[in-house]
Design a protein around this nucleic acid. Structure first.
Length: 413
RNA sequence: GCGAUCGUAGCUCAGUUGGUUAGAGCGCCGGUUUGUGGUACCGGAGGUCGCGGGUUCGAACCCCGUCGAUCGCCCCA
């Protein structure tokens, strides 16, 4: 026999209860997104490589070592999207969506990153995504976060807190960054190896290092608040008071930074509370929803300065938190206990389905065992067909309400 | 890219210091029993023990390599 090819590392075949949980997340997102009047957008799964390298930042890990890039037949370098935001920004610019600005957009689908898979992290993974483009006011941040908060509540996810920070405007962020570099340079030899490297590449990231050696210094590191311009401080104040007004609980996280170059002002993540059930289910992949403001992104793609905020959440991670979602039982299972009654059963099956009932046919294997299999499979009703005096006869096993509903469709026997 | 753990039936797993023909439960298929029902019993199919090499009289078991999975580091949703 020919050998079965293996699935690609880090891809998943999702089935059964896991697939139901996945669908549950997407359905809730679609519902909430409509409540908040976010408009649905469908995006290409791949783009020219430069869309991502310019938007996300050449030096980030995502671009430098995690992209699925390939040359097409014309020699163009293309990349499977590692995130939504860059592609949406490109679409906004190339389609002239400025005319709709401010525009609230929502989408979901697969993303690709060449990483080592582990719990809650895959090479092909799936996100839901929400963006508000062309809105520079803090109310947009509030709107976006209120939507995220409501979504998590509707999913029944508890033990998760919104961690909120500001990175200030471009100047604030640069000043803070310079101060951090200077501070950490002074204690460089005592930092972990990873953080010594981060000092060169991404000094902000030292702040959320997990290494104990770094932690001691992080506590005394310069705080963004010292470097905020008046405007930036006022902006953040408006976001937090807006969240309070909207009833969204949040917690200040001074060392929360986001990995990608384009973030400004608001940065946030929803993270499970330490020791919570949610934290246990997620393993070490703790962020379930993250995002922020990216006012500089459009310029990096050659567009006019355009303020924007957005977030994305991993569907797999959310699905792990919503618990098992059993596949629903059929409204009716039609059992053929004698093949002579097959046609009558098939006819009844069609009638039930046209009447809006979910229905399935059990007509294979030993006729004597089919009924037991139906009982075991579980259904609101079992409609059994047999031959009585040579003619097809029907018997319904269900409670009164279900029996009445079936008889209304099938007629009384 | 680095580290740890693990690969035995469709699934979950047992398999004694290395010793005859590798097992169980569930599931699947068939039969018997029951006969307005989720029962019980009997039988059957299904395994190159991830793959390759080595040690040994003899390897599922020990050693090396390789592939894969899981979890962690880095990074991130």
């Amino acid at each position: 026999m020919a050998k079965t090819p293996q699935a690609i590392r880090g891809t998943q075949d999702i089935f059964g209860a896991d697939a139901e949980a996945f669908a549950f997340v997407v359905e809730a997102f679609e519902r909430v997104r409509k409540l908040y009047r976010f408009r649905r957008v469908e995006m290409p799964v791949f783009e020219k490589t430069e869309v991502f390298s310019r938007a996300i930042g050449e030096t980030t890990d995502v671009v430098s070592k995690e992209m699925y890039s390939f040359g097409d037949r014309g020699g163009e370098s293309l990349t499977l999207r590692p995130e939504f935001t860059a592609g949406i920004a490109r679409a906004f610019l190339s389609n002239g969506w400025q005319q709709h600005a401010p525009v609230k957009l929502a989408t979901h689908g697969p993303l690709f990153r060449y990483e080592r898979p582990q719990k809650g992290r895959y090479r092909q993974f799936h996100q839901i995504d929400a963006e508000i483009i062309g809105a520079g006011e803090p109310q947009a941040d509030v709107e976006l976060l209120a939507m995220a908060d409501q979504l998590l509540k509707e999913l029944g996810i508890t033990g998760v807190t919104l961690h909120l920070n500001t990175l200030g405007d471009g100047d604030s962020r640069e000043a803070w960054r310079a101060a951090l570099v200077e501070y950490f340079l002074g204690v460089k030899d005592e930092l972990s190896e990873d953080s010594q490297e981060r000092l060169e590449k991404n000094p902000l990231r030292i702040l959320d290092s997990k290494d104990r050696r770094d932690r001691a210094f992080v506590a005394d590191a310069p705080k963004i608040d010292q470097f905020l311009s008046d405007d930036a401080r006022a902006f953040f104040g408006a976001v937090t008071s807006g969240l309070d007004a909207a009833g969204v609980k949040w917690q200040r996280a001074e060392s929360l930074v986001r990995g990608l170059d384009y973030y400004r002002h608001t940065a946030f993540e929803f993270i499970p509370d330490e020791g919570s059930e949610a934290a246990g289910k997620l393993g070490s992949q703790s962020t379930i929803l993250g995002g922020g403001r990216y006012d500089g992104l459009m310029e990096s793609l050659g567009g006019a300065p355009t303020p924007a905020v957005g977030w994305a959440a991993g569907i797999e991670r959310l699905a792990m938190l919503v618990g098992d979602r059993a596949e629903p039982n059929a409204d009716a299972i039609v059992v053929v206990e004698n093949d002579g009654a097959m046609d009558a059963a098939i006819a009844a099956l069609g009638t039930l389905r046209r009447g809006g009932l979910t229905a399935e046919l059990f007509a294979s294997g030993s006729p004597r065992k089919r009924f037991d299999k139906a009982v075991k499979a579980g259904a609101e009703a079992i409609v059994a067909f047999d031959l009585r005096d040579g003619a097809p006869a029907r018997r319904i096993k269900a409670d009164e309400a279900a029996t009445a509903r079936l008889e209304a469709l099938l007629g009384r026997s």
